[in-house]
Simulated assay, not measured.
Amino acid sequence: MSHRTSATPTAADQIAYLDTAAATAVGRDYKRRALDALGLRPGHAVVDIGCGPGTDLGRLADAVQAGGRVVGVDRDARMLAEAGRRLADRPTIDLRAGDAHALPLNDTSMDRARIDRVLMHVADPATVLREVRRVLRPGGVLALAEPDWDTLAVADEDVRTSRRFARFVAGRVRNATIGRDLVRLSAQTGLRVRSVEAIAVVFQDFDTADRILGLRRNSARAVAAGELTHADVQPWLRRLTDGPLLAGFTLYLVTAEA
């Protein structure tokens, strides 16, 4: 899952967004780190909670090999349909419709679990983490990757507009500070935190930043909401387009053990 920047996104929009984010340099890097942190071995059973269009399921299946099992859970039937299309030739991957708050898995049935930019959207992150603890075997490992949208910053001489834009974007995310909350929530749900990394997600290309952060879309929405004015936004966007551009936020990668 990802930061949704459209009020009523189509499935194609969401899938394109996820594919774009995963293909960025920082996306490839943190996903590799999260996979390494899981310590997957042949024969493991692993669940990807909020698997979307199956972006990472193939790599999980490669790691656990033919003797292992990969379960992808998502509540969006459109995402599962796309994952099924992409992974039709991977028999060890089991796609299941389900809510992260009530996982369609038996107790202590999984060796590993991953959650990638999903808790930022859910109604109750603590309940999701309790569910993960329920389905993990003792000693099982969870890898979490979540942004902290409150750390979003866009460099520009008009600091006021950049700050208002960042606050507006963070305000559109249900759990904007979930990245910094992962350690506390994991500990409260009985998971033992093993490692924490803070990863700087940095953009220097306007087109990529616009696709991921919605510079044009969200500034237009901020104007419509009365948070910014056209007089603020037009020169701000022009300077960002002309460059040089620098924008970014912090993503937290946490591993925990059941």
Rank of each mutant, 00 (worst) to 15 (best):
R130E: 12
G226F: 06
D156E: 06
A247Y: 09
R180T: 09
A176C: 05
G140F: 01
I212C: 05
A209W: 03
A123S: 00
D56P: 09
S195D: 14
V71N: 07
H101R: 12
F206E: 04
A198V: 11
A88F: 13
R28L: 15
D74A: 00
R180G: 00
A23H: 08
G43L: 05
T127Q: 10
R75H: 06
D232A: 10
A143G: 09
H101W: 10
Q234W: 15
T189D: 01
V254A: 07
L87N: 04
A258F: 14
R134I: 12
S186V: 04
L191P: 00
G27L: 10
G214P: 03
L253H: 11
A61W: 03
R59M: 07
R133M: 14
F168A: 03
L251R: 11
D62R: 03
P235G: 00
A187H: 14
Q234H: 10
G67S: 03
R172T: 13
T189C: 15
R33Y: 09
T255G: 08
D181C: 04
W236V: 02
N218T: 10
D56R: 00
L87K: 02
D74R: 03
T5I: 15
N175R: 15
N175W: 14
D205C: 06
V173S: 11
R239I: 05
E131C: 02
L213I: 08
S162R: 00
E146S: 06
D148R: 08
I178V: 14
F249W: 00
L213Q: 10
Q234C: 01
A83Q: 02
R167L: 00
R75T: 01
R96W: 07
D48I: 06
G190P: 09
V201T: 01
A256N: 13
L144H: 13
R133D: 13
I15V: 15
L129M: 09
Y17M: 14
D99F: 01
R41I: 04
F203Y: 15
A34V: 04
T24C: 06
